[in-house]
Nucleic acid binder design. Structure first.
Lengths: 137, 137
DNA sequence: CCATAATGTAACCATTCTAGTTGCGATTGA
DNA sequence: TCAATCGCAACTAGAATGGTTACATTATGG
């Protein structure tokens, strides 16, 4: 299972928190909905916490809540929090003696950043509040 | 290195073919520019051949040429040829008893396809002919 | 006809990434 | 005190990728 479903799981977990905003949810509850292990959820939510998207409380009756209102958490914020790299990768090597190879890195870097600049606004359009609106009350 | 550089390597290889359009290039030559193994190149170009982007010739003086004019090969065609999945993955599991989990798959599928619909036109804008224009003669 | 130079492909290995799991210390509330 | 909970480290399993070797097949040129 090397498929990268971190973004999907993060949105799922945050949607649960947004669904009943304000109520604490334990990693065990969230893991139950996502059908995975609580530790996997805690690992992922640690990343989201560093980005300010969630806050956690230790101890009994502890758990997670959103770090700010659902309407102010876009899918792009989630994407940035869990995916460090972009969509594609540049190869680290290359033959510097070849004039084509020399130019490829710069060229592809430009392509990748133009792609990113199209994806970002699309993901910014949707917030967790929009997600909740699609969920049953 | 488990980084996914297939797209970058494919564009690099095709750019070499477009640079001196019509001349055959062996996998060894291409591998020399990309700084990898000829078998890696042949494996990748086999995929591109299935998509019609290159043609190969066996035997001595064999090698690869573009399957159609460089101006008619967009980066999107390359992307489709080498990347089967989309950018993100949907988790295969989920708790069907949870109303949030039940809706996530459909919701995320919509998000992913909207992202794809922004990326595709951006990649379609650039062809191999555009790449060659940026290369030294 | 034969040597040479190529592709196509299978097999295998090393590395890296992800998710899953166990265990445990620290913290909090009842 | 006790139970619930996060944080984190360590380990495992499985998959994907790229690199490498090997070999059958095919085409060219003398």
């Amino acid at each position: 299972m090397a498929a990268n479903s971190r973004f999907a799981v993060a949105v799922h977990a945050l949607s649960l928190l947004a669904w009943r905003e304000g109520e604490r949810r334990s990693s065990r509850e969230i893991a139950g909905s996502v059908a995975t292990n609580p530790v996997v959820i805690r690992r992922l939510l640690t990343q989201l916490q560093r980005a300010g998207l969630v806050r956690s409380a230790h101890g009994a009756k502890g758990g997670f809540v959103l770090g700010r209102p659902a309407a102010r958490i876009s899918l792009y914020a989630v994407y940035r929090a869990v995916e460090e790299g972009g969509f594609f990768a540049l190869p680290e090597k290359g033959n510097d003696a070849c004039p084509v190879s020399c130019r490829m890195k710069g060229f592809l870097g430009g392509v990748f950043s133009r792609v990113e600049s199209k994806v970002a606004p699309e993901l910014r359009k949707t917030t967790l509040a929009d997600v909740v609106r699609r969920l049953p009350a």
